[in-house]
């Protein structure tokens, strides 16, 4: 059983890290977004492995169902210059690489060197404690202990909703309106009628 879990963990890790690498290196931005979705999916599976069912489902619902869809939409709305022939990274990408690798090394080395932070691992005599991954405990926490956080998160979401609409809104008058066939027909008729009227007026003037 332990071996099975370790194999699954290894595969998930490969999926998460590999997909994330593809996100930052692949040239086509749509492919990057699709790899990002794969990475999100791996993270959701990792939550399942960590017995946090609710978080896993929320991850799928919010990240895959909403955020990645938003990203795909944004890419398609700004696809005019898809950057196929252009440079992929900024001019100083090597500095970013040094920073990221250095940070990873700074975390990895103490971990490999041993239990550097002295965090006790939960292998106590009591066995595995019963984890609380139920929705009911979370819900109760939201309306008692974390009530203020919960309200602030609600306000944040409302602000973000309104803010996003205000920022991305294009006024109706500035939008190029596409006429429906019926409207086009009416427009043609009216134009014809006004032209005839003008011609008739010109005749009258003569």
């Amino acid at each position: 059983m332990d071996l099975l879990i370790q194999i699954i963990f290894g595969l998930l890790t490969a999926l998460i890290i590999g997909a994330a690498m593809m996100v930052v290196t692949v040239r086509n931005i749509i492919h990057a977004a699709l790899w990002l979705i794969a990475s999100f999916f791996g993270v959701a599976a990792l939550y399942l492995l960590l017995e946090a069912e609710f978080i896993a489902v929320v991850q799928v619902l919010v990240y895959i169902g909403a955020i990645s869809i938003l990203i795909l939409f944004a890419i398609m709305l700004t696809r005019h210059i898809s950057g196929e022939g252009e440079r992929l990274l900024t001019r100083h990408w090597w500095a970013a690489a040094v920073v990221a690798l250095g940070l990873f090394g700074a975390v990895l080395l103490p971990t490999l060197a041993g239990n550097a932070w002295g965090i006790p691992l939960p292998t106590g005599p009591a066995g595995t404690p019963e984890p609380l991954s139920g929705v009911e405990e979370l819900g109760r926490g939201f309306v008692s202990e974390f009530l203020l956080h919960f309200e602030v998160a609600g306000v944040l979401l409302t602000v973000a909703l309104i803010g996003a609409i205000v920022i991305a809104f294009e006024e109706r008058s500035r939008r190029r309106r596409v006429l429906t066939l019926a409207e086009e027909h009416t427009l043609n008729q009216r134009q014809k009628a006004s032209a005839e009227r003008a011609a008739a007026a010109a005749d009258m003037a003569d």
């Binding site: 699709l34 069912e53 489902v57 799928v60 619902l61 169902g65 869809i69």
Partner: peptide, 25 residues
Amino acid sequence: DMNIGLLFFFAISSVSAVGLMMAGW
């Protein structure tokens, strides 16, 4: 019998939107 069955149902159903987007693009 998941204790979050209903949420699971809708979370999973929203994944197919990604597939539609992929197909269209």
